[in-house]
């Protein structure tokens, strides 16, 4: 329990590679699954970059620091275990679909191939659910309090001219609501 809490805080300010390494350490207790798990997280990240790309229209998943936010989500005990596992399962199936269609990892697809693949899975129930869930977390990263580690410098709020109300949590501890 202590390790998770400590790691979560470290993650919020950690670089992507370091963060994912910690994530492996604290969340997966089946040694044999470590490599696969890491791959799932990479797939989650790269699918988020595709679904919400950096462009002239506004910040993308990368700019809002989706990596830190997903690290938080994957350890958030308030999310039901089944929901978290379903999300990770979606990443696994996306990766499997990439191999089926192009014989390579999602991470190594061209932009056009990624889009074709997304269109393909969106026509399937699991795929639509996966994209819907991913976009939901992207929106959370984009529009939540910066204390969660994303929405850096309120980039999402500024982009959409959103008034978030006050007071806002100013630290990671204040989002824990532990009493």
């Amino acid at each position: 329990m202590t390790k998770i809490s400590l790691s979560r805080r470290l993650l919020m300010g950690a670089s992507l590679s370091v963060g994912l390494g910690l994530l492996l350490y604290v969340t997966d207790d089946t040694k044999g699954g470590l490599k696969l798990y890491s791959n799932k997280v990479q797939v989650l990240l790269h699918s988020a970059y595709h679904l919400f790309p950096s462009s002239a229209l506004g910040p993308g998943a990368k700019e809002v620091n989706i990596a830190a936010y997903l690290s938080f989500v994957l350890q958030d005990k308030r999310i039901m275990k089944e929901d978290r596992e379903r999300f990770l399962q979606g990443a696994l199936w996306l990766e499997e679909s990439a191999f089926e269609m192009y014989d390579k990892s999602f991470l190594n697809l061209t932009l056009m191939q990624k889009e074709e693949l997304m269109q393909s899975i969106a026509a399937q129930r699991w795929g639509e659910n996966f994209i819907y869930t991913s976009l939901g977390y992207i929106f959370e990263a984009l529009l939540s309090a910066p204390a969660y580690g994303s929405n850096i410098n309120e980039i999402g709020w500024k982009w959409l001219d959103h008034n978030p109300g006050f007071p806002q949590p100013m630290s990671q501890d204040e989002t824990d609501y532990a009493v």
Partner: peptide, 11 residues
């Protein structure tokens, strides 16, 4: 706090 994640999107 006006924290949509903590208050409205999580239990």
């Amino acid at each position: 706090f006006k924290d949509e994640i903590g208050v409205c999107r999580r239990s």
